[in-house]
Nucleic acid binder design. Structure first.
Lengths: 132, 132
DNA sequence: GCAATTGATGTAATAACATAACATATCCGT
DNA sequence: ACGGATATGTTATGTTATTACATCAATTGC
């Protein structure tokens, strides 16, 4: 999907996520944008919905947070499957793709005649720097 | 891990999950146990924490819900990695294990020196019965 | 030009999910 | 019986997400 011109709110939210060192919750984003005139959660959630749709932001289900896509130039959707390693100490997120994993899951789903719509692979733990 | 004797509240919560056709949210469980004397969310969450620890219940992060483990006789923890296919129409959850996927992810994590603690693989879509 | 449609925004209220803090009670080893 | 650990009960609160409704702005068809 080609990303259309972002609206004002979408740009503000995207900028906050791009500058962040770690995933942010919707309410954290809201707080960071109070000075820009944001007042209500919906302003954030609506922008996030679009950014997710465009594939430039990912939602981390296991921590109810959002990150800017780490591979903005490639098309994440075409990879079919994105996986995340999330450090519980420093918050760093490593985003990666593995075709073999993708393939195995796809084959399994096909064998079950299960039509996949949205896949989540998230590993929580500690990154090289933070691990004892 | 061997599962110790369940307490009263743990048994009640586990029974509700075992009898359910689909994953249940903590608050849905609470409602189903009002007649048994449950009054507060914490009674459910505390029981769930233990059941998760014992490995007899899984949490589905992407839908904030809980299911009884589908493979009670095997030890899910020893599989290292459990994946779920979740039907968004009927709610059915298919739990499965794939050693190859496990292996690929483990190798990748090792290459990054990332210490995994908890992994989540969830695929939302439509099961064979519900797919158009 | 101008109504009609569509998409974006603003705001308030509420729903849904989860935990903190504190008090009591029950179980078990000694 | 005592003391510690675990389980429970209860209230309040914190956190995440959506519903409902009003307004505004850009676009399209006529």
């Amino acid at each position: 999907m080609t990303t259309p011109m972002l609206t004002k709110n979408q740009s503000l939210v995207f900028d906050v996520l791009t500058k962040a060192e770690a995933p942010l919750s919707a309410y954290t984003i809201l707080d960071k944008l109070r000075d820009q005139g944001f007042r209500a959660p919906l302003q954030v959630y609506r922008a996030l919905d679009k950014l997710l749709e465009y594939g430039v932001v990912h939602r981390l289900e296991s921590i109810n947070s959002f990150v800017a896509c780490a591979h903005p130039n490639e098309d994440c959707h075409s990879h079919g499957l994105v996986a995340f390693a999330i450090c519980e100490s420093c918050g760093q997120v490593i985003e990666f793709h593995d075709h073999e994993v993708d393939h195995r899951l796809t084959d399994w789903l096909k064998s079950q005649k299960f039509k996949a719509e949205k896949s989540t692979i998230e590993i929580r733990g500690h990154c090289a720097n933070c691990a004892a």
